[in-house]
Design a binder for these strands. Sequence first.
RNA 1: GAUCCCGUAGCUCAGCAGGAUAGAGCAACGGUUUCCUAAACCGUAGGCCGCGCGUUCGAAUCGCGCCGGGAUCGCCA
Length: 588
Amino acid sequence: MTALAAELSAIAGAAFAAEGLSASFGQVQRSDRPDLAQFQCNGALAAAKVAKANPRAIAEKVAARLKADSLFAKVEIAGPGFINLDLTDDALALRLGTMAKDKRLGAPESGDGKVLVIDFGGPNVAKTMHVGHLRSSVIGDSLQRLFRANGWHVTSDIHLGDWGLQMGQLISEVAHRGIAPIYFDADFTGPYPVTSPVTMDDLEVMFPAASAACKADPARLAEARQATADLQAARPGYRALWQHFFNVSKVGLDREFASLGVHFDLWKGEASVDPITGPMVEDLKARRIAVESDGALVIPVERNSDKKEMPPLILVKSDGAVLYGTTDLATVIDRVASQDPDLILYVVDQRQHLHFEQVFRAAEKAGIAGKATLEHAGFGTMNGTDGKPFKTRAGGVMKLFDLIAMVTAEAEKRLAEQGIGADYSAEERAAIARMVGIATLKFADLSNYRLTDYIFDLERFSRFEGKTGPYLQYAAVRIKSILRKADEKDFAPAARAVLTSPEERALILQLLGLADAMSGAEARRAPNILCEYAFELAQAFSRFYAAFHILSESDDAVRASRLGLCGLTLAVLTKVLDLLGIEIPERM
RNA sequence: GAUCCCGUAGCUCAGCAGGAUAGAGCAACGGUUUCCUAAACCGUAGGCCGCGCGUUCGAAUCGCGCCGGGAUCGCCA
């Protein structure tokens, strides 16, 4: 089954082709003027420019051909040459029936078994996740769900930040505090204690202290660099400490990702490619792709066509330590070896764009990417109301855990105010509050276009009315309620819709747009397209719901048709919300 | 300085492979509940789409130049 817009575009394209014009002019889209038509084709205007002909004359000819197709109830030319199209109710009902019978609801199969590795999340070991981590996690998760739904074979990797200078800073901080001298004793042969010498709370204090110390004191920075190099050179005590940092951090990361409902297939990180980094560097050196420069080993990546300076990718620093460009490159090798992907998608802050450009060029130069396209799907910064990167009033960054707790508490409060939750068990209320809270956060983030910076407004992240996650859940919950009551009364839904109103047609048109929304969101790697679609669907349903009282409808055929529409709307809503990582409660 | 991104209603944001009357939510004002969940629905008001020039039959969308904000630019991630 093809998406409806694609189906209509093919038909219109054939009509253009029959007139000796490019079929590409046949692109059909939902009408900008729903008061005039369901669909529009603007191709005659563009074709006129190329063919140097009168646009209306071309539109007339194309329209004449389209009129012959019984699919259309109306083919009209408006203005300078817009072709306005309405489908017959039969055509709409038929397509809706086909969609309802399909388990995939007509989702695109653009993936066709192609292999995607998606890299997102990227939290740092030894740091608590804060609100800024919401973006990568939530956008990346939505994209992995979308690509999977579209038929890709997807492997997601959290790609932890666990190997750079930050680790060296932490190690030298531990040394300075004298907390665990055994890890620094060169004569000690192990085994090291199984219990971590530091807790997550310790790390949270030590991390900022360490980076401040390195900033203020060049000697401390030198120590941290040395520790980094020693760690990477496999000094046993440092490796043991690193493992403790990792284990201690993993607890919080597991907790946050679990409450967000975000799953990773792989929990790899920069450190996981350590074993292949050395051989890679040797190989690149031998092939003269990597060269020495100012004491460092670099891969020059500039091109003649560059309009800006393109610094080389630094593989090995003059002190012998590697950087994240090195591990990123090695990670490409690892992924190609294990997955042989068609596409590797990096869902990482847009501020790292230059870095990825360097890595991608280096990978191409080294010929290590196999058949994979490497792509950076960046995202904008989350700012505070002052337009600067978000900070709490206290000056710190709000922890993700606290944000989730806050919005969940708000949702619970709301539930109590509604009164309807009074008879629910405490467990159910907590579960609903969690789902509503997470939906609020995710939708508030995902509905912004990926690349634009946006302002983190706590009020917006705890609002449940209007264009929000709970609005979508609420529409679905009302459908569930209707379907439960219909079931009690033994009212069965109809397989084929009977259309009697503009509200029903609008709802059906929106339902039929699912595949187009999924294709568009995939093409642009943009979950906000799914948000927009879901919101419009919920809106179309809410209008339909307000216009008709379904269960008291006396005409059996009409009632059954409307129940069928309810059922399909719920199925589609459930699917889109799943793509956004949003769960739907039974009631709320 | 160079490169890139952004500037749309009071606020927060969509729209930007050029198209008809520029949309949504919130906030404001008014209305809707003997009936399926009012976290809803309906309506009113609110815009030189930063400014200017250009390309085009047609520009929020494309190009150039300004103004304003942000990001990035070899040994951090």
